[in-house]
């Protein structure tokens, strides 16, 4: 069903097959299939309550799925515990900002890098138990994430001392510090002003050019059109359209899902 740009690598980074999440009688996600090819930015748009965030929850295994199959690099991970996902280098941000109040910005970002120090590290040598307990003071990944999200100068601030937009950037930085192969972003620009949004959009495109696959949930369609290579539209837990961003936005079903509601309220 996918008309994706044909890449040399034929294995998708992430593949969902007929994924469903039901809460009692509520079908939050109801039979969604999608393939994410490496090195592209994918977006999911849809009105509130269309199941976007639930879908991210299921992909990251935090939300129990009712049926379906999840594959990462072609291998099923539908039964892998959520804490193992970091080892596959799947990183995510949350819809609500979730920073740890007692840690400063640097330490909050360092948690992301911490997830990389137990598994096959880039250094090659397995760290001793003491090093694992202690962790590095500041990882290069953290320095890099701080630079890319332009958080320099904020390192010793606590989350409660930051504006909402800046807090969101810390979230993105924490995910980047995990050195992800797949980055899932749940409304990364909510609460940001226009210039901050453009900045994040630029950052995500830079990361894409370096080969990072991303899945972005937003309802800011302008942001999606600027950023994404390929967009899925969801309504009532199902995919109603997919394709090039411009194409999907002009799709009558998508317009109805968004605007039918909007017109009904304005009329």
């Amino acid at each position: 069903m996918s008309a994706q740009p044909v890449e040399r690598t034929s294995t998708p980074v992430l593949e969902l097959r007929d994924l469903a999440v039901h809460f009692g009688g509520v079908r939050a996600v109801d039979g969604v299939s999608m393939k994410l090819m490496p090195g592209l930015i994918y977006g999911i748009i849809g009105p509130n309550g269309s199941g976007k965030s639930t879908l991210l929850g299921a992909i990251t295994r935090l939300t129990r799925m009712t049926r379906g199959e999840l594959l990462f690099d072609g291998a099923s991970y539908a039964h892998v515990p959520p804490s193992r996902l970091a080892r596959l280098r799947v990183a995510r941000t949350f819809q609500m900002v979730r920073l740890l109040p007692d840690l400063n910005v640097r330490a909050n970002i360092q948690i992301g890098a911490d997830s990389r120090t137990t598994s096959d590290d880039r250094t090659g040598s397995r760290p001793s138990w003491f090093e694992r307990l202690r962790g590095p003071a500041v990882s290069p990944a953290v320095v890099d994430a701080i630079r890319r999200t332009r958080l320099g100068g904020f390192e010793s601030y606590y989350p409660s001392e930051l504006s909402y937009g800046t807090q969101r950037r810390v979230e993105v930085a924490r995910a980047l510090a995990m050195d992800p192969r797949l980055l899932l972003l749940d409304e990364p620009t909510a609460g940001m002003n226009q210039s901050e949004r453009a900045e994040i959009s630029g950052l995500l495109r830079d990361l894409r050019d370096e080969g990072l696959t991303q899945l972005l949930v937003e309802h800011d369609v302008q942001m999606m059109m600027d950023t994404c290579d390929y967009v899925f539209a969801m309504n009532s837990g199902q995919l109603i359209a997919e394709g090039e961003p411009g194409e999907v936005v002009r799709n009558p079903a998508v317009q109805e899902a968004y605007l039918g509601r909007k017109w009904g309220r304005d009329a």
Partner: peptide, 23 residues
């Protein structure tokens, strides 16, 4: 250090801890 941060995460936000690879 690392353990301290992880303990903080486990207490304050278990779900976040999971997605950061903490069991």
């Amino acid at each position: 250090g690392r353990t301290g941060r992880r303990v903080d995460a486990v207490r304050d936000d278990p779900e976040l801890a999971l997605s950061m690879g903490i069991s």
